[in-house]
């Protein structure tokens, strides 16, 4: 069952990501990005990261992606677009680089097998036990508010800076 679901959502994510890249209409790209993100949220649940999956839906799909759509519509890019996929030389370059990257990453994944074997005793069971003991949210929240408190607080500053920067950049000049 898990394998089935993994294959389903993994395939869905890959396919819709492919469409994001190839779709001519930016709105279509955005909507297929939604599918990719949702499929990844499902994969996160399968991988015992329920809290992150919920965040994925709320933050990524609910906030970031909506922002994308909002900007597309604001700029009237939803129609009368020009095809913007680059010509053949760029496709060859992209293909070559992508192929090389995939090969290298695939090779890089090899050590992960031995990692799993080495960590066999503290495999998914340890994480599941932790989540059962503290709750799915508590497992993430406890280190976040203890060991990672300072970075966590810093993110609030980052967000504040992001808000100010976005306002400053996007507002019309009043002069």
């Amino acid at each position: 069952m898990e394998t089935f679901l993994f294959t389903l959502f993994g395939g869905l994510a890959l396919a819709s990501a492919f469409v994001v890249v190839t779709a001519r209409n930016p709105v279509a790209s955005a909507l297929f990005l939604l599918v990719t993100l949702a499929a990844l949220a499902a994969l996160f649940v399968l991988l015992d990261a329920q809290f992150i999956a919920v965040l994925q839906v709320i933050v990524y799909i609910g906030a970031i992606l909506v922002l994308f759509l909002f900007v597309i519509m604001l700029l009237n890019l939803g129609y009368a677009y020009r095809p913007d996929v680059r010509p053949l030389p760029w496709r060859l370059v992209a293909g070559g680089v992508g192929l090389a990257l995939v090969i290298q990453l695939a090779i890089a994944v090899q050590p992960a097998r031995s990692l799993r074997e080495a960590a066999g005793t503290t495999g998914p069971e340890a994480l599941v036990a932790l989540q059962q003991a503290k709750g799915v949210v508590g497992a993430v929240a406890e280190p976040l508010f203890s060991d990672y408190l300072v970075p966590f607080e810093l993110t609030s500053i980052l967000l504040l800076v992001g808000i100010v920067g976005a306002l400053l950049l996007a507002k019309r000049r009043l002069d």
């Binding site: 492919f18 890249v21 900007v71 890019l77 677009y81 680059r86 680089v97 990453l105």
Partner: peptide
Amino acid sequence: LFTIGVAGVLLRRNAII
């Protein structure tokens, strides 16, 4: 997925995409 993203960055000219 990462490679698809990279390919997209290289292939498209639309900044939002």
